[in-house]
């Protein structure tokens, strides 16, 4: 970690977004993570994405658990709301927060340990409830914060720094999410922001639970030869299947797309995701097909990336529960609130 502060001074010609902010205005505190950690790069991608979407930082709720990954909300959007939940418990707190104020952008940042080990149950239920949020798993195959034990996403045969191999099968968050009915499932890599930033933007705009599994190498404990989550390994087996271009509402689709390989999907807010098929045999709107596709590539040890499954028609937590998505604070108290509560409680006794 660095002890000096990142100075406020910036490039003299740094562009501003629709709100008049530069990308520097979306930063947070100075990272205390290890220099070179993939998580820091994801932080930078989040900053870039929120800036590009003209999101007011104070309209964002940063939700996280415990882990190096879960520390990162301190490093972006310093004006946003945020909470560091107990280890693995962020999904339920996010669910509650979303129930109380569905108008914020919910941004969950978790780790493979936080979501796939201790928090696996919570993770599954947030998907099942289709909480309207973007959920990132910064996946490094280890418990970084506690010094590099294998996590549940470690591949069979992947070794620790000292050479011990992992023998247990990994939980694949992408496969898991699709099978749980998640409506937006993607995989990215901290080392490829060109792919990652539009994925994050699309995920933030998607209504419902959007999950992005992001391979994010741990330079301290899992970036050696023998690791399957290192920078070098990820780059070698990186297999982009679908590229998502995010196009904000009312903006023209300018790029020329090759026929049959591009598929525009309009989101509820009028923005568009153009899915560009890089691997032609995958249709990201076909759930069974997506599962089969992932299976095939798993056997080849390829790391399939991109927006792998998308369903825009799903109904989210508030729609399912027929609750008010607006902020409860804005709704105000019923003048007879106490009496109503009393009556309700009496009925429950």
């Amino acid at each position: 970690m660095s002890f000096m502060k990142k100075p406020q001074v910036h490039h003299a010609e740094l562009p501003v977004n629709g709100l008049g902010y530069t990308v520097r205005d979306y930063e947070g505190g100075m990272s205390t993570l290890c220099a070179g950690c993939g998580h820091d790069s994801i932080t930078a991608a989040l900053i870039q994405a929120c800036w590009g979407l003209d999101i007011e930082p104070y309209r964002v709720a940063k939700m996280s658990g415990i882990g190096c990954s879960s520390k990162t909300p301190a490093y972006f959007l310093r004006e946003a709301h945020g909470i560091n939940a107990l280890h693995g418990r962020m999904p339920s707190i996010a669910t509650g927060a979303n129930a109380a104020n569905g108008e914020l952008h919910f941004l969950g940042v978790s780790g493979d340990g936080d979501s796939l080990s201790i928090g696996f149950g919570q993770f599954a239920h947030a998907i099942r409830r289709n909480v309207n949020m973007l959920y990132l798993i910064e996946n490094n195959g280890v418990y970084g914060l506690t010094k590099g034990q294998f996590s549940a996403s470690a591949d069979i045969g992947s070794t620790t720094k000292r050479g011990e191999a992992n023998e247990q099968p990994p939980i694949d968050p992408v496969m898991t999410a699709i099978s749980l009915g998640c409506t937006f499932v993607a995989r990215g890599f901290s080392g490829d922001k060109e792919q990652l930033v539009p994925l994050i933007q699309a995920g933030l705009r998607h209504r419902g639970f959007a999950m992005i599994d992001i391979i994010s190498p741990c330079v301290a404990f899992n970036d050696h030869e023998g690791s399957t989550k290192s920078y070098a390994h990820t780059r070698e087996y990186f297999h982009p299947a679908i590229h998502a271009d995010f196009i904000p509402p009312r903006e023209e689709i300018r790029a020329e797309y090759e026929k049959g390989r591009a598929m525009p999907v309009e989101l509820h807010d009028g923005s568009t995701i153009v899915l560009r098929k890089i691997d032609v045999d995958h249709d990201p709107t076909d759930r069974a097909g997506a599962i089969a596709y992932l299976e095939r590539h798993r056997e080849a040890r390829e790391i399939v990336t991109g927006l792998l499954y998308l369903e825009e028609e799903g109904s989210d937590l508030h729609a399912n529960n027929r609750t008010v998505p607006r902020s409860l604070v804005d709704i105000g108290m019923h003048e007879n609130a106490e009496a109503i509560l009393e009556e309700f409680q009496a009925g429950c006794r």
């Binding site: 100075p7 001074v9 070179g36 820091d40 901290s190 920078y231 070098a232 780059r235």
Partner: peptide, 11 residues
Amino acid sequence: IECDACIDICP
């Protein structure tokens, strides 16, 4: 190793 750290930190 192309981790982007320098790119992201450069003020």
